[in-house]
Design a protein around this nucleic acid. Structure first.
Lengths: 333, 333
DNA sequence: CTGTTAGCGCTTTCAT
DNA sequence: ATGAAAGCGCTAACAG
């Protein structure tokens, strides 16, 4: 009932090898023969079996991507970048959510490897030795919006420390010296710790004394911004500006400030890092340092294709530029 | 260099069949033998080859999902629902973006079929005869947040007409009789035409004359809401309430109203359908009719597992309930 | 409970 | 330019 390459061969009066050649666009086929084969394919409605092909050729034209949570817009944009490029190179993509749980990450990596993916794109939280161990395989890996501490694995990301630094610098340049930070988890190397470091460096470079009490940690989400602001709002020495580690928390902060009867940016300025779609969909529109999520995905996948084809890559650890986007949430003090 | 089932068999001093049995959890293996095999697997670092398994068993434990655009939050939430259930049943997911382009849809469906997916989840715009033709295969299909005109293909969706009707009904119950609509494309059967129909029915049932001039079509996005409101705002007989076909357009509408110096909901009420995360992240928070995207994905995938296992399903066309969520964007006139 | 033996549908030398 | 034949690594009868 399923029509195979053998059926096509018989129908066209050639051997399976020849059919295989035309299907794979091998030039060593007489045009006339090629035509005969195509006609047979058409007549029989033949559809090549990619699984059999994968077994014989040891290539699946499929890559695995592990992602914390596809329903998070930051990540889904990365995935769109990945898929567009994958598509361009005729790869498909098996997607697995990991929720940044180490066990789940390791498990899906193994599943993906069992499925014989030709390459792996990994987005996650921290890359442990256990991860490195799981990556120790013959298929190429690239870390996507993620880096390992020693930068030994190919990766594509921005410089989170510098991005945060730039954001806080904007505040300072607008005359602010009392700046609170809503941070991510300090255990999280990129979105958490690195951005915290950037804040600290900018503050200190400006000669502003760093105060532990002026940073609160949140879970990256809108609600965390909302909640955390309660703390800053009731401070006797209330900050005139807030740097949030993510746009979502920044938007929460803006609303908390407004709900308290104050104005953004007049009474309090807000800036952050990310530039999600939503950032230009709030009032006032959020100033932020843009992280090029789509490009991170696209560049990662492009890098992976090179690795899979064993092409030489000059720089396997790429750091994409970030960009400060001034909108309406920051004003001079 | 790659270790196969045969290597394990030799190492454990059993046949490949036995190794296959223990790997597949077949109970017909003496515990002692099982132990020997596991040890050999461990020692050799054996990892089963899912491609070979797929070829032999004709099952890949992989499903294909075609989606318009993963970077759209509506869809990415559906995908999260799909993946959670897929994971539960040990399926993986190959994801393809189609941008609702018919050609691309047909192309990826064929690719997915070549890859021998065990089932297919399709999210798209309109389901044409050409689609039905492509679906004519032995693998089960379920339409996800999508339906075919004749309801012959298994599907999971909400009743868009009723959802829109309910939303407009809320406006009417709050005393509004001059209600503008920001619609989606009338060519789009669910998010577009059905919601338009719901609006019309609610209006007419309330004895309000339907006016073509009171509906404008947008492209579902924030900017469309923003732009379209300019029209309504300058109308001599300005509406007191707006029904938008999507939350994004509704949020755009809210901002346009506010930018014009009017207040929501006091001067103009706004309601819509969707309930994206952002709906509760604007001021005023948006009242809307919730579409259970995650559940649509989860239920679709659950239905697909039944179809793949050839289990009987009582109702292959499921309509999930929607729910009116009252927040702050609607008030009595 | 375990082993033997055919394939699954294709790619890929190696001949011709 | 084309064909023959040997696998790819595994599952699934079937036999014992």
């Amino acid at each position: 009932m399923t029509v195979t390459i053998y059926d096509v061969a018989r129908e066209a009066g050639v051997s399976m090898a020849t059919v295989s050649r035309v299907v794979n666009n091998n030039p060593n086929v007489k045009p006339q023969t090629r035509k005969k084969v195509f006609e047979a394919i058409e007549r029989l409605g033949y559809r090549p079996n990619a699984v059999a092909r994968g077994l014989a050729s040891k290539k699946t034209t499929t890559v695995g991507v592990v992602i914390p949570d596809i329903s998070n817009t930051m990540y889904s944009e990365v995935v769109r970048g990945i898929e567009d490029i994958a598509n361009m190179y005729h790869y498909n993509m098996i997607l697995c959510n990991s929720d940044k749980k180490k066990d789940k990450e390791i498990r899906v990596i193994n599943t993906l490897l069992e499925k014989q993916v030709d390459g792996l794109l990994f987005m996650g939280g921290v890359v442990t030795d256990e991860h490195i161990e799981a990556f120790r395989t013959s298929v190429p890996i690239v870390l996507c919006a993620t880096t390992d501490a020693n930068r030994v694995i190919p990766s594509v990301d921005i410089d989170h420390e510098a991005a945060a630094y730039d954001a806080v610098k904007v505040l300072i340049e607008h005359g602010h010296r009392n700046i609170g930070m809503i941070s991510g988890s300090l255990q999280d190397p990129s979105n958490g710790f690195a951005r915290y470091q950037g804040y600290k460096r900018a503050i200190e470079e400006a000669g502003i004394p760093f105060r532990e009490s002026h940073v609160r940690v949140g879970n990256y989400r809108y609600e965390a911004g909302l909640d955390t602001m309660e703390y800053f709002l009731q401070l006797p020495d209330r900050p005139t500006a807030i740097f949030a580690a993510t746009d979502e928390m920044a938007i929460g902060a803006i609303h908390a400030i407004q709900d308290a009867g104050l104005r953004v940016p007049e009474d309090m300025a807000v800036i952050s890092v990310d530039n999600v779609r939503m950032a230009s969909m709030v009032r006032p529109q959020l100033s932020t340092v843009a992280q090029p999520m789509y490009d991170i995905g696209a560049v990662s996948m492009r890098l992976l294709t090179k690795l899979m084809k064993k092409e030489p890559v000059s720089n396997p650890v790429v750091v994409l530029p970030h960009e400060t986007i001034m909108r309406k949430s920051v004003a001079h003090i």
